[in-house]
Amino acid sequence: MKRMHDKTLWMLALGIAGVAISAACGGGESRSRKSIRGGAENPTAANAPAAGDGAAAAQSGGLKKVDPATAGSITGVVKWDGARPAPEALDLSGNPDCAKAVKETIYKEDLVVNADNTVANALVSIDTNDRYEVPAEPAVVDQVGCRYIPHVFALQAGQKLKIKSSDPTLHNVHYIPTGDENTEDNFAMPAPGVRERTFNSADWIKFKCDVHPWMGAWAAVKTHPFFAVTGTDGKFTIANVPAGTHTLVLKHESLGEQTATVTVEAGKVATAEFTLKK
């Protein structure tokens, strides 16, 4: 009777300890972060070479490279149809440290129509899933004056993103991918400070600061470098585009998507125009 107990104890203790240790180690390696939106980060799938036809681009380690000799560029403007909506000023008096950090009045940024009736913060990109070489230099988004600058930006899958905060107040960065591949994260920013992140799949990601609810930004993650964001003149220019016919996609955070077809010839500038309205 006693002997059996002893043996059982041995086995049981070993078994439970083993399970616990393997759970701990296994968990440590998986680096997965499931959120309410589901989806887990998968770093190995990150830079998986995409099957490309390589018509206008040379292969480089499974990733395409643009040959400048056969490339042209696309330029254009995003216009606004209708009366220019008045910018809505933000009242920062509830957040004294922001009020102190911000020198001039800041406005809501979900729809910015420039004085010349063009639309800022619209993302224009080519519709392709081919994977191109990732630039070594990181993309940068800064938090300054309790705003994200830039408000809309794009970067390549696998490219480093430097998330900066230049404000003396504490922000948190909460990014919420709309796609399934990248994973949501939420972290506090050292003030001032820099943190680095990398997104491995194409996505359209919302950035927000939960402490300052008006603070938001959108990041487009693309597999290729053919994108541009309109500025205060509503213009965009995508350089170094392989020759051929492309579908151009415009994406705006509150007005959705539009597409246009454009044919690029080597060494020439193709043009496109979009018009947005309410």
Binding site: S93, G94, P96, T169, L170, N172, N186, F187, A188, D210, V211
Partner: peptide
């Protein structure tokens, strides 16, 4: 209430 707990304030 989470990581921004200490920053959640009002006037």
């Amino acid at each position: 209430c989470g990581l921004g707990h200490s920053q959640m304030r009002m006037q």
